[in-house]
Simulated scan of single mutants.
Amino acid sequence: MKTVKGFASATVGNVACGFDVLGFAITEPGDEVTLTLLDERKKDCPVSIASITGDGGALPLDPKKNTSSFVVLKFLEYIRTHKGVDFSGHISLELKKNLPLSSGMGSSAASAAAALVAANELLGQPCTKMELVHFAIEGERVACGSAHADNAAPAILGNFVLIRSYTPLDLITIPPPKDLFCTLVHPHTELRTSFARSVLPRAIPLKTAIQQWGNVGALITGLLTSDYELIGRSLVDVVAEPKRAPLIPGFFDVKQAALDAGALGCSIAGSGPSLFAFSSSEKTAREAGNAMQQAFLSPKTNLDSDMWVSRICSEGAKIL
């Protein structure tokens, strides 16, 4: 038997104005997936789930329905047909969920990314990390019905990732400014990605689209030039945030609390309910996080929350 453990951290998709085309990874928290290679195949499926912890029993044990095992099945199929790897054994999978479900923190992407780097290591690294992204995206389709890459790609690659095109997939990694810190606050409530997507408009006015394009271009420019003020004023989402904000209790008060504490900008992490804020120092990032948590605790919302302060993760998914 051979055992490998993979880790992938939380990610923030959309990054305000970059709906479905921009995301980034932080350093913690993250999910762990342990794969054990057995000599003999069990039943008809080459992958089985031995255990899942930290999910409260919510995730399926069927390997074809669980994101972490599903992407490993896709990986095995690919290396057999495209890499000439004749895999005839069996992989037993253990998933440790450290990310809350339906949180906007890229929970499904982290499980998929951790499983994929572990599977790749287990079988001699037949694929590059960029190749692994394709399987992680398919895992998102299983998790929420939409094969988006703004969580899956940074979960594997790290840094900021811009998705220039989905067909064909064209990803651009962008290293973060050295003093950029992310505050991530998760209120103790759930918002399912599928529902959060259902409230979005199917068409937007040209004027709105132009505003969004301008903000995306400016945000990328701010990241590449370490212009923190430009980063802050570009974190404006005129497409998704106006529709999703009412789904998050206390959203406007929490966002204003972050800004009042000195954050560069604040918006919804992925589809929510978590919020993220950018700051140009760790001290400000922690002050913003404390203010956001206090705002969630106001009598109007009365929600406990968890808070993390992190630099942008440059490594991506890794072997522990």
Rank of each mutant, 00 (worst) to 15 (best):
T183C: 15
D253M: 04
K243D: 01
W213E: 07
A115S: 13
H148L: 08
G232L: 02
K178E: 15
F278Y: 12
T301V: 11
E32Y: 14
W308V: 10
M130C: 01
N14K: 04
E32P: 00
T128I: 09
L157Y: 11
T3Y: 03
L95P: 01
S111K: 05
P46S: 01
A109E: 10
I319Y: 03
I91A: 03
F135E: 10
V21D: 01
R286H: 15
K43N: 15
K178W: 00
L180P: 07
G56A: 09
L38W: 10
S305V: 05
L93R: 00
T53F: 02
L73R: 02
K97T: 03
S165N: 07
Y78V: 02
V85W: 08
H134T: 14
L264Q: 02
L184Q: 11
K255I: 06
F70Y: 15
A209C: 03
L101T: 13
S48M: 04
T34Q: 12
S92I: 07
V254L: 04
R41A: 08
T284F: 10
C127S: 12
E121H: 07
T27H: 13
D20P: 02
L223K: 13
T193K: 03
A261Y: 00
S267C: 13
L224G: 06
P176M: 13
C45M: 12
G289T: 09
I79L: 11
K64M: 11
Q293I: 07
E287G: 15
L297G: 04
P46R: 06
T3C: 07
A263D: 05
I319A: 08
S274K: 10
E77S: 15
C17W: 04
I220D: 03
D150N: 05
A218M: 13
N151V: 00
G232R: 03
I248Q: 05
L169Q: 04
I91R: 01
D62S: 06
P126N: 08
H82K: 15
L169K: 06
S298V: 00
R286N: 14
R244W: 01
M105P: 06
A257R: 01
L171R: 05
S69H: 07
K83V: 02
A114C: 10
S88A: 13
G217E: 09
L224F: 10
K2V: 02
L95C: 10
I49D: 05
K300S: 14
G6I: 06
A196D: 01
P100W: 06
A25N: 13
K5R: 15
P176I: 11
S279D: 08
H186E: 00
A119E: 12
C127Y: 03
P46F: 05
